[in-house]
Design a protein around this nucleic acid. Structure first.
Lengths: 369, 369
DNA sequence: TTGAAAGCGCTAACAG
DNA sequence: CTGTTAGCGCTTTCAA
C-alpha cells in the first residue's frame, strides 16, 4: 500500500507538505506542488480513508437512512437515492446506505462510531422515534419529508427539512379540476398503512385537497387504496355508487394509476371525456402511463440533490436553513378535460361512451377478489 | 466522545483488555468481562470506526456498486440492495452505495483508499471495464450476474458470481408452454439497450429459450421492447402479423407486463383462454399483475443475500467458490393454459371470446402512438 | 489471564 | 513557503 510517507519521500518533501497539497489548506509553491502531484500520480497514491477519518474526524461519508416500508413507491425512493449518491460524489462524499428497521439505533450508531459525517433521513413519520436522537446528535441531519403537519413546527423543532409542498400540490390538483368545471372529485390515496403511520406527506396532501375543495365548492371523497387491481376496483366502484356525480379523480399512489385507468376503460368511461384524472407522481410515471397523465410531479431527484447540498453546506459551517418546500408544478397532459355537463353527467353513460358495465365482461372475475 | 481508554479507566483495566472483550480474540475472566461490559453500557461507548479501520485494516463496510443504467427494472435493483444491506447488517457490516458511471474508477477508489473491505458488483456486462480492476484488486468481490456467456468461463476468469440461472429459466418457460401444447411462442425481451450493452442475463435467457424451443419443436419469435405501451403494441402487432399461430408469450421485461396484458385484453384475446403468458420477473410483479402471472421468479432478495454471505465468508478466510447459479422456479398462476387448437387457433377469435376488436373501442387511438 | 507499548496513515498545530 | 511533531482511537504483538 502506498502511503503519504511514500509520496513525501518520492517527492523529497515532508509528509505535511503532501498533506497540504491534498487539502489545499495552505499555499504551496507551484514547483513543489507539481512535483508532489507528479509523485502522487506515478505512485498511484490514494489517502487511506480510515487514517484520514481518525486524524481529521471527517469521514467523507453521508449516511442515507431509507427504511423501505410498506406502501412506498420504490422507484421514487431509488431516484432519491441515486440523486443523493451522485450529488454526494460531486461534492467528494460517499453514501452509506442504512435501511430496515434499525430505526433510532442506526442514528446512534452513526453518531457514536463516527461512521458518517451527516445523515439524510427519509420516510419521516409524524412521531418518528429517530427525531429525538437526531436532535441530540452532533452531526447535521436533513430530513426528506416533514415530521410535522406544518413547516413552521418543523422549523421550531430545529429540524432541517426538504420536501415537496404536498399541501400546495393537493390544492393545485383541485384548482385545476375546478377550473375545468368538475364539482365531484374522488381522491385515491396512499395505502391505509401510510396514513396510519402518520407519514406527513399523505396527510398534508389531504389538507391541501380539502382546503381547496372548500374554497372552490367542490365535493371531495377520499379513499386510501392499496395499489392492487382489486383494491382500486372496490374503491372506485364504491365511489361511483356513493356519488354518481363524480367526474374526476386525484391519484396519489403510483401503484394505483394503471389499475384505475384500466378499470375506467373497462367500465366504458373515457379519459378525459367522461372522467378526468390528475396524479401526484413522478414525471416518469405520468408520461408513461397508458394515458399520459396531467400531474403534479414529485421531484425526487431534486429532493435528493437539495438534501445533499444542504448537508454539504452545513458540514462547511453553514447554519441550518430550516424547512424548504418545493413548489408544486402541475403539467397538463391528456388525462384531464372539461367536466361533463347535462342530465347524465357523471352517471353511467349511454351511447358511444359505453354503458357502465361494458360488453366485454371480465370473465375471470378479477374485480371481485 | 467516549473512547476505549475511557472505558478502560472506568473499569480499572488496560485498554487492550477492553479491546479484547470487544473482539473476543482472547479469553477474559468472567468477572472482568462483566465489569468491562458494564462500563461499556453505562458510558454508552461505541468504537470509533476510523480508528478501528486504521488499526485493523478492516472497515466493516461492503461496497455495493449498482450502476442504475437504462432499461433496468428499478424495484429489482432495490430489492437486491435491501437484501444486501439487511444481510450485511446481520453480519455486522454496513453498505456503501456506489452508483453512476464512475465505473472502474470506483473500484480503484475502494481498493486504494480502503474505504470498504469488499465489493458487490451489479449489472455486469459482457466486457465490463470493471472486471480487470476487480481481478487485480486485493479485496474480494462478488458479482451479481455473469460477465460471460457461461458459468465455466466466469470461473475460469477467477470471478465469484451469483445469479439466477437465466438459461435454465428460459428453457423452463418454453417447457411449460410446450407442455400445454403451444407451438408458436413470442418472446418480449428487455429493451434493446440491455442487449446491446451485452448484459449477460438477457443473452443467457435467450440461449435457454432457443435451445428449449429447438428441443420441443416450437417456433420462437424474439422481440426486444422498451417498456412502453407504444413499443409493446408495435411489437405484439407485428408478431401476430408475422405469425398468426402465436398462442403464447414469454415476457422478460417487467415494464412490458401490463402493457401486454392491456393490449391483449383490448384486442379481445383472453388470457389464458386465447393466449398464454409466462413472465420472468419478481414474484411481486407476477402476483400483482392484472392477471396473476405464471412466472419464473427472479429471486432478488436471495441473490443479494447470497452475495453478502459469500463475501462475509471470504473476508473470514474462505476461498472463492466460483459461480453459483440459482435454479429457476416456475410458479403456475392464472396466465397460462392449454393451447387453442383447431382452425382459428391463434387468429382473432369469434364467439364467446370476443371478436378481436372489442366493443369498447379505444377512441383515443392509444395503440398508434 | 492481563498490561505495556508500538504503531496503523493522516492532520494540524507549532516552529521556522 | 516548508518541516517537525504530537496525537487521533484502536489493535496487536510482546512480556509478564
Amino acid at each position: 500500500m502506498i502511503t503519504l510517507a511514500d509520496v513525501a519521500r518520492h517527492a523529497g518533501v515532508s509528509a505535511s507538505t503532501v498533506s497540504y497539497v491534498l487539502s489545499g489548506k495552505r499555499s504551496i509553491s507551484a514547483p513543489t506542488r507539481e512535483r508532489i502531484q507528479h509523485s502522487i500520480d506515478t505512485l498511484g497514491y490514494r489517502p487511506h480513508a480510515g487514517a484520514r477519518a481518525l486524524a481529521s474526524s471527517r469521514t467523507g461519508i453521508l449516511a442515507l437512512m431509507m427504511p423501505l416500508r410498506t406502501g412506498l413507491y420504490v422507484p421514487v425512493m431509488m431516484e432519491i437515492a441515486m440523486a443523493v449518491t451522485t450529488t454526494a460524489r460531486s461534492h467528494g462524499y460517499d453514501v452509506l446506505l442504512l435501511t430496515g428497521e434499525e430505526g433510532p439505533e442506526a442514528v446512534r450508531r452513526v453518531e457514536g462510531s463516527a461512521i458518517a459525517d451527516a445523515m439524510i433521513v427519509m420516510d419521516v413519520g409524524l412521531d418518528d422515534p429517530r427525531l429525538p436522537c437526531l436532535q441530540e446528535a452532533e452531526r447535521p441531519a436533513v430530513l426528506i419529508g416533514l415530521p410535522t403537519e406544518s413547516a413552521e413546527s418543523a422549523d421550531a423543532a430545529g429540524l432541517d427539512c426538504v420536501d415537496l409542498d404536498f399541501e400546495a400540490a393537493g390544492a393545485r390538483c383541485v384548482e385545476h379540476l375546478a377550473g375545468l368545471g368538475h364539482t365531484g372529485i374522488a381522491v385515491l390515496g396512499e395505502p391505509p398503512a401510510v396514513y396510519e403511520r402518520g407519514t406527513g406527506f399523505a396527510a398534508r396532501t389531504l389538507t391541501g385537497l380539502r382546503a381547496a375543495a372548500g374554497t372552490h365548492g367542490v365535493g371531495l371523497l377520499h379513499r386510501p387504496v392499496d395499489g392492487t387491481y382489486a383494491a382500486v376496483t372496490a374503491a372506485v366502484t364504491r365511489v361511483f355508487e356513493e356519488r354518481p356525480g363524480t367526474t374526476a379523480f386525484v391519484v396519489q399512489n403510483e401503484a394505483a394509476v394503471e389499475p384505475l385507468l384500466a378499470l375506467l376503460r373497462h367500465q366504458g368511461r373515457a379519459v378525459p371525456e367522461d372522467v378526468s384524472v390528475v396524479a401526484i407522481c413522478p414525471d416518469q410515471v405520468a408520461v408513461h402511463a397508458s394515458v399520459p397523465l396531467t400531474a403534479v410531479s414529485v421531484p425526487a431527484p431534486e429532493m435528493g440533490r437539495l438534501a445533499v447540498e444542504r448537508l454539504v453546506g452545513r458540514l462547511a459551517g453553514e447554519t441550518p436553513r430550516g424547512t424548504e418546500l418545493i413548489p408544486p408544478l402541475l403539467t397538463a397532459r391528456a388525462s384531464t378535460g372539461p367536466a361533463l355537463t347535462g342530465p347524465t353527467a357523471g352517471a353511467a353513460l349511454p351511447g358511444p361512451h359505453g354503458s357502465g358495465s361494458a360488453p366485454t365482461e371480465d370473465r375471470r372475475g378479477r374485480g371481485g377478489h
